[in-house]
Amino acid sequence: MPEVLKAPLVVEFPFTRSLGPVQSAFLTGLRERVVLGVKTTDGRTLVPPVEYDPVTAEEIRDLVEVAPTGTVTTWAWNHAPRRGQPLDTPFAWVLVRMDGADTALLHALDAPGPDAVHTGMRVRVRWAEERSGAITDIACFEPYDGDPAEPTGHSGEFEAPITGIVAPARLDYTYSPGRAQTAYINALSARRAVGERCPSCRKVYVPPRGACPTCGVATSEQVEVGPRGTVTTFCIVNIKAKNLDIEVPYVYAHIALDGADLAQHGRIGGIPYDQVRMGLRVEPVWTEGARFPDHYRPTGEPDAEYDTYKELL
């Protein structure tokens, strides 16, 4: 079996999220170097604060300032920081109970080594130089041997509170399409369309995905189809797509390649858009160096009879 294809795949997206009133106050507070908690109805102070009581689910809104100093409740030494983490030198992950709080906040502790870290040690916030209203406005924590810092009694009301965050995310993958699609893509780069036949119902799938969706069995017998085919149905595209250099209107069609039992889609060219019709016979048009057809154009043959493609609609 030839090697399966592999290619890097980056999935990257910015999540834009709105904030509730408590989250907004907390993150705006970090921007202003103020650490806020929220009081539960039974009198505990949650830091980081949340919108609803984790025990009773009651809405909680009573903000209270706590100190930017605290105590480590557990820790873990990270000798090999990963992308996106708060520090790029070895550090300790810590849960820190801020002075005045009853619960703990997750962050990083900048310390020289694991021997310098222990549960119960005292730490304080190291503020980021540039702050925007995000958990990363705390650059990290650092060891601290002084008394608890005194909160200023902040009300939690700020000028220009932030109402949302944008959280970028990026994940890197190595994509492999598996055996069946590798074979299809390799054949396509030689300008051949090769599908696979179901051993049970005998249908030919192009592109093949390795299984017959009707019978639930593996397909493996390779069958070359096309290159010509029949338009089974189509639509007229009137909206110009971003980064796509095709004049509108144009036709996008389902095309059943000769010998295939599944239509695939492609653009129709070489004919005015309002003359494309069901049953139109087409063939692929390749551009130099392309790995798939640029579009399909009419062959000039008579249209296919409806009965020959009605099962493929």
Partner: peptide, 19 residues
């Protein structure tokens, strides 16, 4: 809001629990 922006990986979080 408070955790994912720090990218704490699954082993790190389990290690906090272990400690």
């Amino acid at each position: 809001y408070y955790v994912a922006p720090l990218w704490p990986d699954s082993v790190a979080l389990a290690a906090l629990q272990a400690q």
